[in-house]
Design a protein around this nucleic acid. Structure first.
Lengths: 331, 331
DNA sequence: AACAAAAAATGAACCGGTTCATATTTATTT
DNA sequence: AAATAAATATGAACCGGTTCATTTTTTGTT
C-alpha cells in the first residue's frame, strides 16, 4: 500500500507538499499539483485515515447509543443525526445497546480511548443506572425526559400528553384509559404526569385502575384492549403511550366488537407511518424525530468544537394530529 | 491526557514494559505490575486506541451495510454479527445506506482508507449498480440471492418459496396469488422462481395476472389485497414475499369481508414477531436471521485474518412455519 | 560462590500522516 | 538589474502506541 512518501518520491517532491496538495490544493503550484495527481493515480494512493486521525488526535466520529435499532422512531432520529454529522465530516457509529448497561459502557469506553469524540444518547435517562453524564465525556441526550441532567433535546412530553387527553375531555370523555409503557420508563412518567394534569384541570379524579401497563410492544397493547373491554364500566377513550400499542388496541377492540371511534376513541404517540393507514386512522402526537436528531448532532458537534451552547435543554415543538380514531362519546 | 510515557516515568520503568504489562501481564514481574497499575490509576491513563490501531495497521472494525435499519429482519442479522464480532474484539460500524449508492460508496471508502477492515453487505446484489465485490476489499454478502458473486450467506429462497407454494397446492389450491416485492429486487426474483417451480411441478399454468407487485411495505400489501378481492375469479390463496405485506393483506381481506383461512389462505416470508400475534396467526418462512449474521461475521473475520474459507456460498436452513392462516380451499 | 540459563526490562526505531520554521523560487517594485 | 515581497517547497520532528535486538536481573545448577 502506497504511502505519502511513495507519492512524494514518485512526484519528485516532499511529503509536506503532498500533504498540502491534499488539504489545501490552492496553495500548491499548478505544475506540481498535476504531477502529484498523476503520482497519486499511478500508485493508487489512498491516505491512511487511521494515521490522519491519530495525528489529528480526533477520530471525527460520534457514537449514537440506541436501545433498539429496529424502531421507526429511533431510525428517524438517527437519520437526522447522520445528516448533520455528514455535513461536518463526522462519521456516525451506531451503538445498539439492546438496553444492556454493559454494552453501553463499552461504547462510552470508545470515547475514553479516543475512538470517538462524543456521544448522543437515545436512551431515556434513569437515575439508578445512568452511566452518563460524565464530565470527562461530551454527550447529548436526545428524546430525553424532564430532568435529564445534561445537554438534551426533546419535546414537552408532559404538555403533549396533557394536550391529547385534554382534547378527549373537551369532546366530553370522562373515563379515559391509559396504556402505558414499562413501569419505570421515564417517558412513561412524563406522559402519565401530563395525563394527570389534564384530568385535574377538568376536575376529574385520577383512577389508577384505568392505567394498564404495557411494554411499548404490539402484544401488550392487545392485552390491554382485552382488559379494558371486560371492565364493567369501561372507558370511552384510550390514551396509548405509543402508536404500536394503540394500533394493537384498535385490533383488540375490533375483535371484541367495539366500534371506533363511536364506542371508543383512541390516541397514540409517535406518529408512526402505519398510523396513517390503519382503520380507523390513528390520532397521535407527532414528534419531530428527524429534527431532534439534527439538533442533537448540532449540539454535540458544538461541544466537540469546544464552544459552550447557550442552553442546556432544547425543547422542540410536537404536533397533535387528529385523525379518524377520536369522536365524542355516545350520549 | 496521560500517555504511556507518563506512566513509564511515574512507575520508574520503560515504555516497553508498560506496553507489555497491558498486553501480556504474565510476562512482567509482580512487583512492577503493581507499580504500573498504581501509576495507571494515579494518572487515570487510558491507552489511545487511535494510536494502537494506527500502529497495528488494523482498525479492528467491520462495516455492515444495511439498506434500512428500522427493519426487524436486518436488526436480527446485525445482532448475530455483533455477537461474533464482539467475541473477536472487533467493533461493528453500521452503515445505514438508505438504498443510496452514494452512501454505500462512502462506507466502502472507509475500508480503502483503513478505517475498517471489511464489509458485510445486507443489501441484495444487483448486477447493474453493484459496488461490490471488489478484489481489493474484503466483503461478505449476507442474506443474498442466487448468483451473488462473492462470499455469501443465505437461505435457499427458491426452495423456500417452492415449499410454501407447494404446500398450498397440496391442500388443493389451484389459483394462488402472489404479492411480490419491488420489481427488480433480487430476492423477489428468487422467490418468484420458487413459486413458478411449484406450479409447474403440479402442472398448473403460470398466470402473470395473479402476481401483484408491492414494495415490501405495509401499504402495498393492503392495495394488493383490494386488487385480489375485486377479481372476478379471485385466488383462493396468497403467497406474500414478506410478512409485512401479508399482514396488511389480512387486514385488507378482512375489510372486504373475506374470511381467513376458509375463503383465503395466506403465507408470508420472514417470520416477524407480529406474525405470531395477528389474527389469524400467519404461516410463513422463518429465516435464521441471527445465524445468517453470525456465519457472515465468521466468514469475514476469517478473510480478515488472511485465510481462505473452503466454500464461497453458505446456505443455511429455513423453516416453514404453519399457523392458522392456511386451510384447504372451500369445496 | 561461580556460572549458565531463563526471565524481565530497556529504549531506539517505527507506523504514516501533519506541521512549521526555514529555504528556495517566483513575482513585483524601484 | 537589483532589491524586496510574496508564494511555494522542504524535511525533520512529532503524535502515542508497539516491537525487538540488546542489556540487565533473577533463578537454578553444580
Amino acid at each position: 500500500m502506497a504511502t505519502i512518501r511513495d507519492v512524494a518520491k514518485e512526484a519528485g517532491l516532499s511529503t509536506g507538499t503532498i500533504s498540502k496538495a491534499l488539504s489545501t490544493p490552492e496553495r500548491v503550484s499548478k505544475k506540481n499539483l498535476e504531477k502529484i495527481q498523476a503520482a497519486i493515480k499511478k500508485l493508487n494512493y489512498k491516505p491512511n485515515m487511521l494515521a490522519q486521525k491519530f495525528r489529528a488526535k480526533s477520530s471525527k466520529t460520534i457514537v449514537v447509543l440506541v436501545p433498539d435499532i429496529a424502531n421507526q422512531f429511533f431510525a428517524s432520529v438517527i437519520s437526522g443525526i447522520e445528516l448533520v454529522a455528514q455535513n461536518k465530516g463526522f462519521s456516525v457509529l451506531l451503538g445498539d445497546t439492546r438496553d444492556s448497561a454493559v454494552r453501553e459502557r463499552e461504547f462510552v469506553r470508545m470515547v475514553e480511548t479516543k475512538l470517538a469524540d462524543g456521544i448522543i444518547n437515545l436512551r431515556p435517562y434513569k437515575k439508578q443506572d445512568a452511566i452518563l453524564p460524565r464530565d470527562d465525556i461530551l454527550a447529548v441526550s436526545a428524546s430525553s425526559c424532564e430532568g435529564t441532567p445534561s445537554y438534551s433535546v426533546r419535546i414537552d412530553n408532559v404538555g403533549a400528553a396533557k394536550k391529547a387527553v385534554g382534547h378527549l375531555i373537551s369532546l366530553g370523555h370522562k373515563r379515559i384509559g391509559v396504556i402505558s409503557g414499562l413501569q419505570d420508563n421515564p417517558h412513561n412518567i412524563d406522559r402519565l404526569n401530563g395525563y394527570k394534569a389534564a384530568l385535574s384541570a377538568a376536575n376529574i379524579d385520577y383512577d389508577p385502575t384505568l392505567v394498564i401497563a404495557g411494554d411499548f410492544n404490539y402484544w401488550s397493547g392487545l392485552t390491554a384492549a382485552e382488559q379494558f373491554s371486560s371492565m364493567k364500566q369501561r372507558p370511552t377513550a384510550i390514551f396509548s403511550m405509543n402508536d404500536e400499542m394503540a394500533i394493537a388496541a384498535i385490533r383488540g377492540f375490533k375483535d371484541k366488537g367495539i366500534n371506533m371511534p363511536q364506542d371508543m376513541s383512541i390516541i397514540g404517540f409517535d406518529d408512526m407511518e402505519v398510523s396513517r393507514y390503519c382503520i380507523p386512522t390513528l390520532s397521535t402526537i407527532s414528534q419531530p424525530a428527524e429534527k431532534i436528531g439534527q439538533k442533537s448532532a448540532e449540539l454535540l458537534l458544538q461541544l466537540i468544537e469546544g464552544s459552550k451552547p447557550e442552553t442546556e435543554e432544547y425543547i422542540l415543538p410536537y404536533e397533535f394530529v387528529i385523525r379518524e380514531s377520536i369522536a365524542p362519546p355516545r350520549a
